[in-house]
Each structure stands twice: as C-alpha cells, then as structure tokens.
C-alpha cells in the first residue's frame, strides 16, 4: 500500500517543483479568465486547482503532491498573484493528502474513482478557503458555504473528467 502513496525519488521531487510551477502559471491564466467571467465564484480557478492537485498526486504521489501545492501557494504569494494565497498553503496540503488517501484505495482506471478522489479533495480544499472567506473578509458563513459548495461541485465533476483524460494521455505518451 505504501508504494501507492509515497515516492521519494529525485524524479518525483523535481517533477513536483516543475509541475508546481505549471500549476501556478495555469492558475494565473484561469484566474484572468475568471476575473471577467465569474469574479466572485472563480469556478475555472477552482477547477484548475482541483485538477492539478489530483494530477500531481497521480503522477508523482506524495510528498510530491504537497511540495507542488506549497510551490504553488508560495510562488503565488511571492509574486503577489493572489491576496488569499496564504490559505492555499493549507488548502493545497490538505486537499492533496485527502486525494492521495482516496486514490490509493482505487485502481484509478474508472471515471468514478477519479470523481470520488476529487470529492475528498475539493471538499477539504474548499473548506480551507471557506474559513479564509469567513475569518478574513467576514463573509456570512451561509454565503461562504454556498460559494464553496458550488466551486467544489463544479471542480469535482470537471476536474475528475480532466484528470482521468490527461493522466491517461500522459501514460500513453510514455513520458512518465
């Protein structure tokens, strides 16, 4: 079971950093689109987050998932990309761990496996962001909960489908 959860070779560690950078750049790209389409819900950003959190775990397992999440959050803070990136530190770490724990129980061959792993990931990740919305910007908890639920729902479905397809394509490419 351990080998389904942990990988500490250099390829996985370096991969975590480099895919973590891809993660930041794609968050910036989707963030710019969200700023026009849905500035309050950030559905695309949330989906992108869930997709990468899952994909990195599938590619390099742990602690790569956590490292990539930390790289994303720290670069977002250092480059002044997102004011609430501080909360990504927790969301990324917790979301990634939960995804790993669920993914290790499945073969990850079926879409349902990906959806289940994404449910765990998006729910916990969005809970962290929800805490940020309530404590920092004093958003009413009901509104924060509603916004987080919508983001989690969309993230689960879209990111679940995307992780399956992109991970499948990566495996087919023999690059991993």
């Amino acid at each position: 079971m351990k080998e389904k959860l942990v990988r500490t070779d250099t390829k996985a560690l370096v991969g975590a950093v480099i895919i973590g950078i891809v993660f930041v750049i794609m968050e910036q790209v989707t963030g710019r689109i969200d700023a026009v389409l849905d500035p309050t819900l950030l559905l695309l950003n949330g989906t992108c987050w869930a997709f990468f959190t899952g994909l990195i775990v599938l590619m390099y397992k742990q602690p790569a998932g956590i490292i990539a999440g930390l790289v994303e959050a720290i670069v977002a803070m250092a480059t002044a990309y997102s004011p609430l990136a501080f909360f990504f530190l927790f969301a990324n770490t917790i979301g990634s761990i939960v995804y790993s724990l669920i993914a290790m129980k499945f073969s990850m061959e079926k879409l349902s496996h990906h959806i289940l792993a994404q449910i765990g990931c998006t729910v916990t990740g969005n809970l962290c962001v929800m805490a940020g919305l309530i404590y920092v910007i004093h958003l009413d908890w009901k509104i924060a909960l509603l916004s987080s639920c919508i983001t989690a729902l969309v993230g689960t479905i879209v990111a679940g489908i995307l992780t399956k397809s992109v991970y499948g394509s990566l495996r087919k490419s023999a690059l991993l």
Partner: peptide, 19 residues
C-alpha cells in the same frame, strides 16, 4: 496547456537525471 505539461515533464526528467 498540454504542450506546456509535456514539456515540463520532459524538463523535470532531464533535470532530475542531471542532478
């Protein structure tokens, strides 16, 4: 995004090997 991802995977494989 996809070319970026493939390229990143190639890069990380080479970098890790060099290290």
């Amino acid at each position: 995004f996809l070319p970026f991802l493939y390229r990143a995977v190639r890069r990380s494989t080479e970098t890790a090997l060099a290290m």
